[in-house]
């Protein structure tokens, strides 16, 4: 048994246990933290498979950004744990159905991948996996994404853009009466715009403006 095999079993078993804890933990914050553990172990599995670029992108995008915002929201929510557990039995059949459909889809997708020359391919285009000694992960991915799948890649970008604009439109409210700071205007103000020197009268007679 090599070190790699031991590492594989450690990563995968911890990932499975942690993902069970995600759904069974009572405290939602603990759930999110276990989810982060799952992401970490998935990244470890990617590393073992030689996909170091994907491993680190997984960490940066999911752990570094998505899960932080997730944790942010979960911590801010005022959750009543009793009401959550009450709904469990009611929603179980529906959730189970969704889970079964997803499982069936995954099995269908995996079994329907055409097998070209002993290597599973997507979309019928065979891409020989380059030698990792000569071509780095990032180069290999870039070559495929920016040549064969250029339009699909751009399309994915547009889908993300639409999602981003949608999120902004949904949350942007015009609030009348709210005050904004205009930094440019503030910086261009000089003392002559705002300060006025008033000639004072002798004491005891008060100040009269204009």
């Amino acid at each position: 048994m090599t070190i790699q095999e031991i590492a594989f079993y450690i990563f995968s078993s911890v990932a499975i246990i942690a993902s069970l804890m995600v759904v069974s933990a009572r405290n939602p914050v603990h759930s999110v933290l276990f989810l982060i553990v799952v992401f970490f172990n998935a990244a470890g599995l990617f590393l073992l498979a030689g996909a170091e670029f994907l491993a680190l992108i997984l960490l940066i995008v999911y752990v570094g950004a998505v899960a932080v915002l997730f944790l942010f929201v979960v911590m801010m929510m005022d959750i009543n744990f009793a009401t959550i557990r009450q709904g469990f039995v009611r929603y179980f059949p529906f959730a189970g159905l969704v889970g079964l459909i997803l499982l069936a889809e995954i099995i269908f997708a995996i079994t329907s991948i055409p097998d070209v020359g002993g290597r599973a391919t997507l979309g019928g285009v065979a891409h020989p996996i380059p030698d990792p000694q000569q071509v780095s992960n990032a180069h290999a991915l870039g070559r495929i994404l920016y040549t064969d799948y250029f339009y699909v890649f751009q399309l994915a970008g547009i889908v993300l853009l639409v999602a981003m604009i949608g999120a902004i439109v949904l949350t942007l409210r015009e609030r009348p009466g709210s005050k904004h700071q205009n930094i440019g205007r503030q910086s261009y103000r000089s003392s002559s715009d705002t300060l006025q020197l008033i000639q004072d009268k002798p004491s005891g007679q008060g100040v009269h403006n204009g």
């Binding site: 933290l33 170091e52 670029f53 932080v68 911590m75």
Partner: peptide, 25 residues
């Protein structure tokens, strides 16, 4: 001397926020 050194640093620095948010909570 890994191929993706800069990504590794970026990932580690983006994980730094967890220590803070966990401590606060």
């Amino acid at each position: 001397d890994i191929n993706v050194g800069i990504l590794y640093l970026f990932a580690i620095s983006s994980l730094g926020v967890y220590g803070i948010i966990m401590a606060g909570w």
